[in-house]
Amino acid sequence: MSVDVALLKNICEAPGAPGFEKEIRDLVVKEIQGHVDEYSIDNMGNVIAIKKGVNNPEGKSVMVAAHMDEIGFLVSHIDDEGFIRFQTLGGFDPKTLTAQRVIIHGKKDIIGVMGSKPIHVMKAEERNKPAKIEDYFIDSGMSKEELEEWIEIGNPITRQRELIEMGECVNCKSIDNRVAVYILIEALKNIKAPAFDLYAVFTVQEEVGIRGANVAAHTINPDFGIALDTTIAYDLPGAQAHEKVTALGKGTAIKIMDAMTICDSRMVKYLKATAAKHEIPWQPEILAAGGTDTSGVQRMGKNGSIAGAISIPTRHLHQVIEMSHKKDIDDSVRLLVAALEDMNTASWEY
């Protein structure tokens, strides 16, 4: 199995700010048709695809979640000169906005650039202050009158950056979490016989509070859950060994905990054993800050679920230069497929 870079490129470059996931959702639906028994789109906009389990007399179910949304912005004001102010959708480090292009999605797409006060006219004390979100505005090169033919308050804005290959890595905006969307699509194409009824859920609005996964898990009430998301690869100059979380090229990651979830010890043990059985490289993930759909999958069903997560090591998270290693992506697909096919062979007793 090798990474389909062309498909990953399409997935990463498709726009889909939280609450505005239509374009990436349409792409997902196109890719999964013919590979699932049925699919539906719920009121939140989650895509819920089902593959029936084989020899599953007890009707056990497993939910796998990968969120479709990407961090983005919302038009909040257009001033008299045509400059756009915005509301963030998701978490941003303000300094990463400098010198970036964005796309404003209105009646037609408009390219803009993130602008701020030029350093040449800054006072000395201003130059040494950290950037703030409110220091930035979007310049489209158009007047207010021109803009308002196409753009209105409330339109979504996404970041503009194409996917490229760098060595054995891929680099793009929105690797978080489009790489997991890709992994779940590839798993649906490759899995032959899921042990339990598989609910593959492409969720919405994760970046603003795990909203789609909460609703989907409440609806499905799965017995088991696996979330797919990126995690920090802090394998960079200056990083101490205990700070790295994960490293690129060392295999997929099996989550033990993050700030929102302590993964079920049975699922952690099972994923480790599955990786060993199939000779899939893996690394443990303990993330002190941040959370993923794992929390919703684990807790929002009526009975809760035996939940864990497969994480994809990624450098430069929440920037437009996010980077993952193709081998880690491939290992993640392999582990997910094996885990779903072998799930009825494990003991789930405490």
Rank of each mutant, 00 (worst) to 15 (best):
S324I: 03
D342H: 14
V297R: 02
E38C: 06
T231D: 05
P284W: 04
Y350M: 11
N344G: 15
L340G: 14
H35F: 15
D330I: 02
T294L: 05
C12A: 15
Q298L: 02
L97Y: 04
H35P: 04
V113P: 08
I24C: 11
P222F: 01
E146P: 09
Y39K: 12
D4R: 08
T274K: 13
T345Y: 03
E58K: 13
V215I: 15
S61M: 02
V208Y: 00
P237Y: 05
D176Y: 06
L8W: 04
G291I: 13
E206G: 12
I11T: 14
I48H: 07
E206P: 11
R299W: 09
E165A: 01
A124E: 10
Q319I: 04
G16Q: 12
I50H: 08
L188P: 10
A276Q: 14
G290T: 07
G154F: 06
K173T: 00
A288Q: 09
A307V: 10
A17V: 14
H35W: 12
I329R: 07
R315N: 01
E134C: 04
L336Y: 06
R127I: 00
S265A: 14
N214E: 07
F224G: 06
K192R: 14
A17D: 06
G106C: 09
R178L: 02
K108N: 08
A17S: 15
H242M: 03
L198A: 13
C12Q: 06
H105M: 09
D342L: 06
A241T: 12
I151M: 07
I50T: 11
T96G: 13
N128A: 14
H218W: 10
N221I: 01
N155E: 06
E207Y: 11
K108V: 03
D69N: 08
V47W: 01
A227R: 07
I226T: 08
V75F: 07
N177S: 11
P284R: 04
D293K: 09
G308A: 13
L147W: 04
R334Q: 15
E31Q: 14
W348Q: 10
K52G: 03
G34M: 11
V28Y: 08
E125C: 01
H105L: 13
E145W: 02
E165Q: 14
E162T: 05
Y39F: 15
D93G: 09
Y199A: 06
A66Y: 01
N177P: 08
G106Q: 13
A259P: 10
E186P: 00
A66G: 06
S347I: 02
L248Q: 02
E134T: 15
